[in-house]
Simulated scan of single mutants.
Amino acid sequence: MSWRDRLTTPDLPVPTLTETIAARRRFFGDAAVDPRSGAVRADQVLVAWFGCASFAVALGGTVVLLDAWVPRGVTSGYVPTTPAEVAALRPAAIFIGHGHFDHAADAGPIALASGAVLHGTAEHCATARKQVDGELRCVELGSASSQPGDSYEFELHDGLSVTAVRHIHSARTPRHEGPGASAPVRPTPCLCDIRTHPPTLADGAHLARNIAAPEGGVLLYQFRCGDFILTWHDSSGPLLDRAPQVLDALRALPRSDVHIGAVQGFNQFTNGLRDPRSYIEALRPKVFVPNHHDNWLPVFTARGEAFRTPLHDEIARLPEAERPEIRMFLDPADYLASGRLAFDLS
Rank of each mutant, 00 (worst) to 15 (best):
G38T: 11
G38A: 13
G38L: 06
G38Q: 07
R41Y: 00
Q44P: 06
V45C: 07
W49H: 15
F50M: 04
F50A: 03
F50I: 04
G51W: 00
C52H: 15
F55W: 09
F55L: 12
G60S: 01
V64F: 03
A68R: 03
W69G: 01
P71H: 11
P71G: 11
G73T: 07
G73I: 05
G77A: 10
Y78H: 15
V79I: 14
V79R: 03
P83T: 14
P83S: 11
A84W: 01
A87W: 06
A88D: 12
P91R: 14
P91E: 14
A92Q: 12
A92R: 15
I94H: 03
I94W: 08
I94D: 05
I96Q: 07
I96R: 11
G97P: 04
H98E: 14
H98L: 09
H100Q: 13
D102V: 05
A104F: 13
G108E: 10
I110P: 12
I110S: 04
A113V: 08
A116L: 04
L118I: 12
H119A: 15
H124A: 07
H124S: 09
C125M: 13
A126E: 15
Q131R: 10
Q131Y: 07
V132C: 12
V132S: 02
V132F: 05
G134W: 13
L136M: 11
L136Q: 08
R137I: 02
C138Q: 04
V139G: 03
L141Q: 04
L141C: 10
S143A: 08
Q147T: 15
D150G: 01
